[in-house]
Write a protein that binds this DNA or RNA. Structure first.
Length: 377
RNA sequence: GGAUGGGUAUGCCCAGCGGCGAGGGCAGCGGACUGUAAAUCCGUUACAAAGAAACACCGCAGGUUCGAGUCCUGCCCCAUCCA
């Protein structure tokens, strides 16, 4: 399923075969939590901006519209009209982000819906069942994303529970994949490594889950409060203990620089809300750093967001016009910004793959980072 | 000429109806955001700076009161209506 085509240090150029098509790695997955990229981006748009994998969320789709409804409608691919790979996050991140609305127990997590307050129980089995109903390409194991500032004893206990949950996820997924009425009987399962910023907990956990023969392995619980240096250190320490023949997914990360550093340290999959959320907020990624289109200095700027960019925004519209749309709260402004940012990320991943193919990743990374650090336009 | 309603810090809109060193919204400007409770959130524009010391202020000027943005009188301006 996962084939490493080329390697440069720990950086890998690979191919991941799925029933919904081949994923060229390293890849950045475009986040559409509720089966929609926020900012009025359609799946047709995703094709235009070279998206390989769309990412949606188990908890959010369970709450609304309901995974059973999506199953009745033929699964998530048919529902949102997207026939390429989809990865569904398990709800584990909501254990972190909705911390005020949930209680963790051995059996699973009791949430109060952020929509209407109703009680929702989600354990490993429930998360797998929901993801099976959604019929995503890749399901994520149900974990606890613990805060990186959590103390050692908490993290130790949390990781042990996440391990027990992982075995339950695996057993449940194996059961669901042979059921008659399962839409995607080839649904893949990725396990998630945790351990906050404690390298020894991370590596012990990595060794333990590596034995389970999962389809891929994720590093979770990073970029949740620790420094970049701590994050990079944890990645360096952890990756060597994950199976070499399986893709490694760094969850929720990150900035373009984070991605370059991640690739160098052996990461194959990334995802982050940054390009879409920052796009909606008027922050645009360019090869010369990030710009905030809300700033008054762009009022009369008739250049595109980035000269030479092939995205739907840059091909046709000026900074001044898009700034006007944003300030006027016209949806088109956000949409164009999100399209630009996702295109920027997807294009950067293409460049990374090309560089790896050519054996020039190190030089590419250096050049790219120097550009980001340059003077903002 | 008359009637009624208004003029509140910095551009606009407004709250306050005797204890006010006057509150909010919008706009403007800036910032934050990492497996999305986020088209969100935060900051922001007299002076001073924790000192019973100093003192800008509610269209303007007086007055009543221990105390006035608030009550009274006059004036100015705006809106609507009537002549």
């Amino acid at each position: 399923m996962f084939r490493v085509l080329k390697q440069e240090g720990r950086a890998k150029r690979g191919e991941f075969r799925t029933v919904h098509g081949v994923i060229q790695t390293p890849v950045f997955m475009n986040v559409g939590t509720v089966a929609a990229i926020k900012g009025a981006v359609s799946t047709e748009d995703l094709e235009r901006i070279h998206t390989q994998v769309e990412l949606s969320n188990t908890y959010h789709l369970h709450v609304r519209p309901g995974d059973k409804i999506i199953k009745q409608l033929g699964g998530l691919h048919k529902f949102m009209s997207w026939d390429r790979p989809i990865l569904t996050d398990s709800g584990g991140f909501q254990v972190f982000s909705l911390a005020g609305l949930r209680k963790i127990k051995e059996e699973g997590v009791y949430f109060h819906s952020h929509i209407d307050g109703r009680k929702i129980f989600m354990g490993p089995e429930e998360s797998m069942q929901i993801q099976s109903n959604l019929a995503s390409t890749i399901a994520m194991a149900f974990d606890e994303c613990a805060p990186s500032l959590a103390d050692r004893s908490y993290v130790q206990a949390s990781v042990e529970r996440t391990s027990r949950w992982l075995e339950r996820c695996k057993a449940e997924m194996d059961r669901l994949n042979v059921r008659e009425d399962t839409i995607n009987k080839n649904q893949l399962l990725f396990g998630i490594n945790q351990g906050a910023i404690y390298a020894d907990i991370r590596t012990a956990h990595a060794k333990q889950i590596a034995r389970l023969g999962l389809d891929g392995y994720a590093i979770g619980g990073l970029a949740v409060g620790e420094s970049h240096e701590e994050m990079y250190y944890i990645i360096e320490e952890t990756v060597p203990f994950l199976p070499e023949d399986k893709p490694v997914y760094l969850m929720g990360v990150g900035t373009p620089a984070n991605i370059l550093e991640g690739v160098e340290r052996g990461i194959d999959f990334f995802d982050c809300v940054y390009p879409s959320r920052n796009g909606r907020h008027g922050h645009l990624y360019t090869n010369h750093g990030k710009i905030n289109l809300f700033n008054a200095k762009y009022e009369l700027d008739d250049r595109p967001i980035e000269e030479g960019c092939g995205c739907p925004a840059c091909r046709r519209y000026s900074r001044a016009y898009i700034r006007h749309l944003l300030k006027a709260k016209e949806m088109l402004g956000m949409r164009l910004c999100v399209l630009h940012n996702l295109y920027f990320y997807n294009t950067m991943m293409e460049e990374i793959r090309d560089a790896l193919d050519a054996g020039e990743f190190a030089a590419y990374k250096k050049r790219k980072l120097a550009g980001f650090a340059g003077i903002q336009q």
